[in-house]
């Protein structure tokens, strides 16, 4: 008799089941790929779901042009290894107006990410998009369905979500409407880390501590990934200090706070994660906008 399935085995089986349902029922699915650790897990699960075939959908990166250089490098390599097409979308309007995290604050996220995402989904006509969001990340996520239905204008209506019973997912929709699908909804940050370790999944080196050039900005510690560009946008060259730092989440380098750390291996990173006393998203500016309801409001506007 085989041993009972562990929680990670069950979470993996559930995620694969969800990914296959979408591939079977959606007309044109796509996997959102942000190059972070959750995306790495999602890509790995997609490979597993369809092995020995490659996943039957492309990867989409909604780029802000402000990601870490290490992220861009891993992006290209991962897509190629998976045998998947990689689509990169940069909002041309944000490009033209030179939207950046320093001068434009919340508009940076809105234009590059929220608007960029909507543009890409509409342009390619995707009717289902996988995302790596988890219910443990944030309060409004805790109530979002695995299949999260979006109107033709990509809005989310938390009061009008489809009931989701058993593991039966309703993927029906009208033309122009779409569904965001979150296969790792039931994973926690620890689950993700441990899965990465057990499955030996490659992640961006920035998650591990190393000596990096850092600067302080509005009370946070950031990495000077591209000092020339920072200088151009900030108007002056920030004071750089070399510090041993790592990142708990990865976004745009001027928006993602670094933490001082010596954790250079996965075990050490997990150890630090478990012993830490602040939540994962705290390093992100996005949740703090608009008071306690920041994320919920962003999602109603079409944010992933």
């Amino acid at each position: 008799m085989t041993a009972p399935l562990t929680h990670l085995q069950r979470l993996e089986a559930e995620a694969i089941h969800i990914i296959r349902e979408v591939a079977a029922e959606a007309e044109k699915p796509v996997m959102m790929y942000s190059i972070g650790k959750d995306s790495a897990v999602m890509l790995h699960l997609a490979k597993k779901a369809f092995y020995p075939s490659p996943p039957p959908f492309p990867l989409l990166h909604v780029d802000t042009t402000w990601k870490f250089r290490d992220m861009y490098a891993l992006r290209e390599r991962s897509a190629e290894e998976a045998g998947m097409e990689l689509l990169v979308h940069q909002n041309p309007e944000a490009q033209e107006r030179g939207i950046n995290p320093f001068d434009h604050g919340p508009l940076h996220t809105d234009m590059w990410k929220t608007e960029g995402l909507k543009q890409a989904l509409t342009m390619y006509g995707f009717d289902a998009a996988f995302g790596g969001a988890r219910r443990d990340e944030e309060k409004s996520r805790a109530k979002e369905r695995v299949f999260s239905f979006r109107t033709t204008s990509h809005g989310w209506d938390p009061k009008n979500q489809r009931p989701e019973l058993w593991n039966l997912y309703n993927a029906k929709k009208n033309k122009g409407e779409s569904i965001r699908v979150f296969p790792i909804s039931n994973w926690t940050e620890l689950d993700v880390w441990q899965y990465i370790q057990l499955e030996n999944i490659e992640i961006v080196p920035l998650y591990f501590a190393a000596e990096r050039p850092t600067f302080e900005y509005e009370g946070g510690l950031f990495m000077a990934d591209d000092i020339e560009r920072l200088e151009r946008v900030m108007g002056a060259r920030p004071a750089i200090t070399m510090k041993s730092v790592r990142f708990r989440t990865l976004g745009c380098f001027p928006l993602t706070g670094a933490v001082e750390s010596e954790a250079a291996t996965l075990s050490e990173v997990i150890q630090e994660t478990l012993l830490t006393t602040t939540s994962e998203r705290q390093g992100r500016v996005i949740d703090k906008d608009a008071g306690g309801a920041g994320m919920e409001k962003k999602k109603q506007e079409g944010y992933f």
């Binding site: 219910r135 805790a142 109530k143 938390p158």
Partner: peptide
């Protein structure tokens, strides 16, 4: 609504 929580 239904909210899902996690603990170990």
């Amino acid at each position: 609504d239904v909210a899902y929580r996690f603990f170990n």
